[in-house]
């Protein structure tokens, strides 16, 4: 599965970068996220509930932040599994100045298997986009300190 998208922020790249790499903020904004516990070395243990079509289940796994180039970019590596399948993927996140604000470009690809692939394949990209949209909308509210624009 591949998923790419862009999000605009009314805040400078440094603020966006910091917010995107702060576990508490991420955990608070990620829909379905139940916990994000640091394991050290920018790795975290995560638990979250994800639903794709009729397939809803709890996933456990690790999230690692790599190649941290503040404020320009970093890479997210995700490896999780649960009763409804597994997902392993990588997302490159690039933050570019855009006038007084910034643009976050997300490029991600993941291998997904198990029931979520078999039953929900047609809806996976749509679900990923929905989760990402919600996440960035929430994050934007925090970074910009004002109500959601979207």
């Amino acid at each position: 599965m591949e998923f790419n998208s862009e999000y605009e922020f009314d805040a400078p790249p440094e603020a966006v970068f910091d917010s995107l790499t702060t576990p508490e903020t991420v955990a608070g904004c990620l829909p379905g996220c139940e916990s994000l516990e640091p394991l050290g070395d920018d790795r975290y243990e995560a638990a979250m509930t994800i639903g794709v079509a009729a397939i809803k289940g709890r996933f456990r796994g690790t999230v690692a932040m790599r190649d941290m180039q503040r404020p320009d970019s970093f890479t997210l590596q995700v490896d999780g599994k649960g009763s409804t399948g597994f997902a392993r993927g990588e997302a490159s996140i690039e933050i570019a100045p855009n006038g007084t604000g910034s643009t976050v470009a997300v490029q991600s690809s993941a291998k997904v298997g198990g029931p979520i692939a078999r039953v929900g394949q047609r809806l996976l990209v749509g679900t990923a986009k929905m989760v990402a949209d919600k996440f960035f909308a929430c994050l934007r509210k925090q970074v910009e300190g004002k109500p959601d624009r979207s």
Binding site: G113, P115, Q121
Partner: peptide
């Protein structure tokens, strides 16, 4: 290509 069955229903 990874061998995931996409027509499972």
């Amino acid at each position: 290509d990874d061998g995931q069955l996409l027509t499972g229903t």
